[in-house]
């Protein structure tokens, strides 16, 4: 379970998160919605441990582990996965090589045996088939020359391979057409289970038609201002964020 209490953080001295309280119990999927500049991406980066995001107060734990005390790679081996809003290109680094390196790093961290090239390929091919990804994506450079949709699918493939306990999806729906959106949603839904929880960060309600969340939280101006069931997302779509702000 992810437990965030009174979390405050700043970038370059500017306070962005102003006291976040949030709990995502194991097995649940929660959505965080909010307008641009509300602190959604900052929240995901702070949880993942990106440099330049300074935590000034509060706590964040995952299954009892103090996330804020760990290096980014330690958080990853603890089971935290961040699907990037803008997946990064690694020129010259083969996608298969990268995926296997990451998978084996996580497996080492969990004390599981590493996979050799053949075992990995077998696993990767199976997962790619589920995600309708062409196999040649394994041979290409990491995200190099990928379309926006391919990059997001590559993120979901990584998630499917690494099998995290907590996946944070940072606006994974942005820039996706409806088919790609369905594939991404299917990828997340396939992960659903008692050992998997997720924080789906999104600007629009659209994605939540396909990934139905257990709870919806509205983030505005660095705070959670409203929480509710899946119906909250729908009413937001009709009334807009300004209505919440006024309330």
């Amino acid at each position: 379970m992810l437990k965030i209490e009174g979390l405050t953080a700043e970038i370059d001295g500017k306070q962005i998160l102003k006291g976040i309280d949030l709990e995502v119990p194991q097995g649940e999927i929660h959505a965080v919605m909010g307008p641009n500049g509300s602190g959604k991406s900052t929240l995901s980066y702070v949880l993942a441990g990106r440099e330049g995001y300074e935590v000034t107060g509060g706590t964040a734990t995952f299954n009892g582990h103090d996330l804020l005390a760990m290096e980014p790679e330690e958080r990853a081996t603890t089971g935290l996965f961040l699907a990037f809003q803008y997946p990064v290109e690694l020129p010259g680094v083969g996608n298969a090589n990268f995926l296997r390196t990451a998978l084996n790093a996580i497996r080492r961290g969990k004390g599981e045996p590493e996979l050799d090239a053949m075992q990995f390929l077998k696993l990767a091919r199976a997962r790619m088939k589920e995600l309708s990804m062409p196999e040649d994506m394994l041979k290409r450079g990491v995200n190099v020359g990928f379309s926006g949709g391919e990059k997001k699918r590559n993120e979901v493939l990584q998630m499917a391979l690494l099998r995290p306990g907590l996946a944070i999806l940072d606006e994974t729906d942005s820039g996706l057409d409806i088919d790609a959106l369905k594939i991404v949603a299917d990828g997340v839904n396939a992960m659903r289970g008692p050992e998997f929880s997720s924080l789906v960060i999104t600007h629009y309600q659209r994605l939540l038609n396909y990934i139905v969340p257990d709870r919806v939280h509205v983030l505005m101006n660095g705070r959670i201002v409203q929480s509710g069931g899946p119906e909250l997302a729908k009413s937001l779509e009709e009334t807009g964020y300004t209505a919440v702000q006024a309330a």
């Binding site: 440099e51 790679e73 081996t77 680094v93 990268f98 390196t101 990451a102 790093a105 996580i106 990584q158």
Partner: peptide, 23 residues
């Protein structure tokens, strides 16, 4: 690039090695 690799579980030095080898 470093953060992306580390978020996937690679240590800083492994990440540098991977990126340099790609380069």
């Amino acid at each position: 690039q470093l953060f992306y690799c580390r978020q996937r579980g690679l240590t800083q030095e492994d990440a540098v090695g991977l990126i340099v080898n790609g380069f």
